[in-house]
Design a protein around this nucleic acid. Structure first.
Length: 962
RNA sequence: GCGGCCGUGGUGGAAUUGGCAGUCACGCUGGGUUUAGGUCCCAGUGGGGUAACACCCGUGGGGGUUCGAAUCCCCCCGGCCGCACCA
């Protein structure tokens, strides 16, 4: 390294040249200064971080990154991309009159930290804290202007105390559908006690609250609580040894982390009733300044569908279906229930009805046998297999018939795995003529297909000749009438409205909205997560720990690794690491509920790694508050609603797009609960979201396909060689496993942190992925060297800047740069901002003689957000004694932003034929006259007359010859 | 299958949103400084063409709208991302 280090030899010729060694010295010195000075401390209105009222009085900016996992691998140059971007933006905001909150914490619970700890054999807390320290050292080297007083890790008991506190808030509340907000569960109990609200009974009959046992009351409340335990089928992943949320399972039925198969299993688990917020989560997206792609993903995930619920009578009861196409009810020729639908047993008869078709029975002697066999087969399949077989429609007849409410027809009831229990009512009416899935099933089981929409593609109404279902919103409904109603001749929209009205009038159905979103599975069988502040009494009733018992800290256990299983073995069940510590699990406590000291068993699940990141933006605001998760005044100041931000929130949140339906959805949900309960004034956590792209890197593979160390690959004549052997090159992720990681440390060692910051910002637009190219970094280093040289004499170290009037060209270059850089930084277009700084700097390099102070100083200020260390150093050299961080960002003089003359392009038939130097204020008429008189234009016209002239003064004239 | 985004020099990328295609940087070529390599400095660099101009071609391909298209519309090709038996 030292031989190729530009620092070494050049020092002889130019002892005061800006070199890597000098950069390192400057950077370390200013980082120490900032730390000692508390330069980046943002004052709060109140509390222990209250400060300078003049600064507090400024408009605020809360600028945040998605905080990192402190993994043991350390950082590569891809990680800090977003941190550098927010830092540049935060510095710019500080220089334009804002009180800026910018800090960074650590998301330290969860699977990666635990797995790393398992691998290295050390306690997760020990390895995690070591990793945090290591990462802090790496990050400090980059000169990020974070407020260190506000940093924390989610594993700090002072922090997770409040994560647990929020859980209890959610546990102790319910969603009032009328008020459309969460309310304390005590309000619901009061309604039950007073009789204002009927107590729902298992058999549908109302009961008196006072007559219920404690266990019965707990069961009733559990159906309302926003955090509740249930036995619903969950995603069980034996390979990881834990259950997972829907959001953590990939489309092909595998765990997002580890890529293990996932099975459906009935296990008692904690859930969060995020579905109660489906409509608000959808509606409030409108006012957020987020990338459309992420909004769209959330909309799709929430999956709002308008339709109707319709009852199909059977044996004096009914099977309810959800459909988005109630207008096709007359074409419903059979029904399908999900295999696990609870009504299946109820209606399954003892024997097959007379003459049941052989293909319907699956060869089984009785319906019960057929159903049992099909269910067993469905349950044994992993989602992966189920997915793979999606093409073939399977199912079995239950032996039962229900009544189609519009035409009284008896329709057979099937179970099939193409209907999912988790969506709608878990039951559908099948309209094979209009739905491709139903069509395939009907063909496989020889079921009737009634044409109820007139085909517009010429296929005719004889469905026996059809190859697929027909569906079109432009077609007319046919064959759809009874004595009471006719949809015939109507379009889809009108038919839907009419049939829905009819269903409601007859009391057999109603219009409704259905959501795809499911409740959030919130418990994990892990050690390294927040323990639930929940205990169970001897009756098995869950009780919340009182706030005074928080934080409930993780106990020491012999073995904190999760129990994992053969990844393909569905017949396994989870084991929680915390359950191994009997002393911790079995406790005698006085919960302060008047029942005195009693024996309890602690909940041994832990919270998912998303819990800590669901509210961390709030803790940055008031990190040491021991009374409240955040003081209201501080919360309102930094997060409260204001003009253009009706729900409040963080001013800028930068991070990867991979959290679209995970962290970003969960955090919005918690935000709304806390808002409803009056703990915060912001109903949204993040007003503006920006997704940074990924820094990619070339991956070189040998003939066996194995990645070889990228740093040792040589290029010759467009081909790549590793140890003489030819290798292939592809663009991929950067990382240790692909042997192409480049660390910030090595770039800092070779060029300094300012160069690294500039390079990462100059590579391209922040939201686009682009390949890392170490050899291109030198370009930004050269920029800083030239900048240095424009202020400092390399041989003597003396400042060369003079107090003289700059020339007109230089003034224009300066003010155009100021104007452009301001606009670009405002819009997070760091790459073009740097190009403009470079242009100005190159201009000064080319101009003879020393640089005027009135140009050098604003130039240093322009550079300050991007390369803060060299800017501080030059600012000091220019004679200032204060830090550059809080200087005012230069303001462009409009008089110099426009050129004295502009180049006007004269086109003939759209091709450029001449260029004119004209005044920017020239009139269209004048410009046309000048253009037509230009000799090159006259020559290009060659005597032809002029048919038309388009003038866009002062930039362009286009002449169309006759 | 459905939905979304994107294709510009050898490379990363600019283009005031319909008005000079290629800002800035890497790389490359030539020159200077240097004992030499590297660093550093200067110049050139879309392709064809020319001694040099001129001129011609050019934003994945094809068509269209327009005085004028990288930008708008249609078709095709290629790539990336999301969802996916959601009734």
């Amino acid at each position: 390294m030292s031989e190729t280090n530009p620092a070494a030899a050049s020092e002889v010729a130019a002892p005061h040249r800006y070199t890597a060694a000098m950069a390192e010295e400057i950077e370390a010195r200013w980082q120490d200064f900032w730390e000692a000075d508390g330069t980046y401390g943002a004052p709060n209105p109140s509390g222990d971080l209250a400060g300078d009222p003049a600064l507090v009085a400024r408009p605020k900016k809360f600028i945040m990154d998605m905080f990192p996992y402190p993994s043991g691998a350390g950082l590569h140059v891809g990680h800090p991309l977003g941190y550098i971007a927010t830092d540049v933006f935060a510095r710019y905001q500080r220089m334009t009159g804002h009180n800026v909150l910018h800090t960074l914490g650590f998301d330290a619970f969860g699977l990666p930290a635990e797995q790393y700890a398992v691998q290295t054999g050390t306690h997760p807390r020990v390895s995690t804290e070591a990793n945090i320290k290591n990462m802090q050292v790496q990050l400090r080297r980059l000169g990020l202007g974070h407020d260190p007083r506000r940093s924390f890790a989610t594993i700090d008991p002072d922090y997770y105390k409040w994560t647990q506190w929020i859980f209890l808030q959610i546990f102790n509340s319910w969603y009032d559908d009328e008020a459309k907000k969460a309310r304390p569960i005590a309000d619901l109990v009061a309604q039950f006690e007073s009789g204002d609200r009927a107590v729902p009974g298992a058999d549908g009959n109302a009961r008196a609250w006072g007559d219920l046992s404690a266990a019965e009351r707990a069961d009733v409340l559990s159906d309302f609580r926003l955090a509740y335990a249930s036995d619903a089928p969950v995603n069980w992943c034996p390979g990881l040894g834990t259950v997972l949320a829907n959001e953590e399972v990939t489309a092909d039925g595998r765990s997002e982390r580890g890529n293990f198969p996932v099975f459906k299993a009935k296990l008692r688990q904690w859930n969060m009733r995020i579905t109660a917020y489906a409509d608000r989560l959808l509606d409030d997206l409108e006012a957020l300044d987020w990338p459309e792609a992420i909004k769209l993903q959330q909309r799709n995930w929430i999956g709002r569908s308008e339709g109707a619920r319709v009852d199909f009578p059977i044996d004096g009861e009914a099977i309810q279906v959800f459909t988005t196409r109630p207008d096709t009810l007359f074409g419903a020729t059979y029904m399908v229930l999900a295999p696990e639908h609870p009504l299946v047993e109820k209606f399954t008869p003892a024997t097959w009805p007379e003459g049941t078709h052989e293909v319907w029975t699956g060869g089984h002697a009785t319906p019960a046998e057929a159903v049992a066999a099909y269910r067993a087969q469905a349950a044994s399949k992993s989602d992966v297999e189920r997915q793979a077989e999606a093409k073939d429609k399977t199912g079995v007849f239950t032996g039962a018939f229900a009544t189609n409410p519009v035409n009284g027809e008896q329709v057979p009831v099937f179970i099939a795995d193409y209907v999912l229990m988790g969506y709608g009512t878990g039951a559908i009416m099948a309209v094979p003529a209009g739905d491709q899935r139903d069509f395939e099933f009907a063909r496989a089981f020889e079921l009737p297909i009634h044409c109820i929409v007139e085909p517009t593609d010429g296929r005719g109404t004889d469905t026996s000749t059809w190859d697929n279902a027909f569906s079109s919103y432009d077609a007319k409904i046919i064959n759809s009438s009874n004595d009471d109603i006719s949809l015939d001749g109507l379009g889809v929209v009108d038919a839907k409205a009419r049939i829905t009205e009819w269903l409601e009038r007859k009391g057999v159905g109603h219009g409704t909205v259905n959501f795809r979103l499911r409740d959030w599975l919130f418990s994990r069988q892990r050690y390294w997560g927040e323990p639930f502040p929940i205990v169970y009494d001897e009756e098995g009733i869950a009780h919340a720990l009182p706030e005074s018992m928080l934080p409930l800290e993780l106990p020491e256990v012999e073995d904190y690794s999760p129990r994992t299983f053969d990844a393909d073995d569905a017949n396994t069940s989870p084991e929680t690491p915390l359950s191994r510590n009997e002393d911790w699990v079995n406790v005698t406590l006085d919960l302060g509920d008047g029942r005195g000291p009693r024996k309890y068993r602690r909940e041994t699940n832990t919270m998912p790694n998303w819990a800590g990141s669901c509210w961390y933006e709030l803790r940055y605001l008031d990190p040491h508050n021991s009374e409240q998760l955040v003081g209201p005044e501080n919360e309102r100041y930094w997060m409260g609603p204001r003009d253009g931000m009706p729900h409040g929130g963080v001013d800028l949140y930068v991070g990867g797009a991979e959290h679209a339906v995970l962290h970003l959805l969960y955090a919005r949900f918690w935000s709304k609960v806390l808002f409803d309960l009056g703990h915060v004034s912001s109903a949204e956590p993040f007003h503006k979201l920006f997704n940074q792209g990924m820094i990619q890197a070339y991956v070189y593979r040998d003939s066996r396909g194995i990645a070889v160390p990228a740093a040792e690959v040589e290029e010759r004549d467009g081909a790549y060689y590793y140890q003489g052997e030819k290798v292939t090159r592809l663009l991929g992720k950067m990382g240790k496993s692909l042997k192409n990681a480049v660390t910030p440390d090595e770039i800092c060692a070779e060029y300094g942190a300012d160069t690294l910051r500039l390079y990462e910002m100059a590579m391209g637009p922040l939201d686009v992925s682009r390949p890392w190219d170490t050899r291109a970094v030198v370009g930004q280093f050269r920029l800083l060297q030239r900048l240095w040289r424009n202020v400092v004499d390399e041989a003597t170290g003396a400042v060369t800047v003079v107090d003289a009037e700059p020339d007109e060209d230089t003034l224009r270059a300066l003010h155009k740069a100021i104007d452009g850089v301001r606009q670009d930084l405002e819009g997070l277009r760091f790459n073009t901002a740097i190009a403009k700084v470079t242009e100005l700097n190159n201009h000064l390099t080319k101009v003879q003689g020393p640089v005027a102070r009135s140009v050098a100083e604003p130039l240093v200020l322009l550079v300050a957000p991007l390369a803060p260390h060299i800017a501080e150093e030059l600012w000091r050299k220019l004679g200032h004694t204060d830090s550059v961080v809080h200087q005012d960002f230069p303001v462009a003089d409009p008089a110099y932003v426009v050129d004295e003359t502009v180049t006007c392009v004269v086109q003939v038939k759209g091709k450029v034929k001449a260029r004119l130097e004209v005044s920017p204020s020239i009139s269209d008429e004048e410009l046309e006259k000048v253009a037509l008189g230009d000799e090159k234009v006259v020559a290009a016209l060659g005597g032809a007359g002029v048919r038309k002239v388009i003038v866009r003064a002062p930039k362009l004239v286009n002449i169309v010859p006759a």
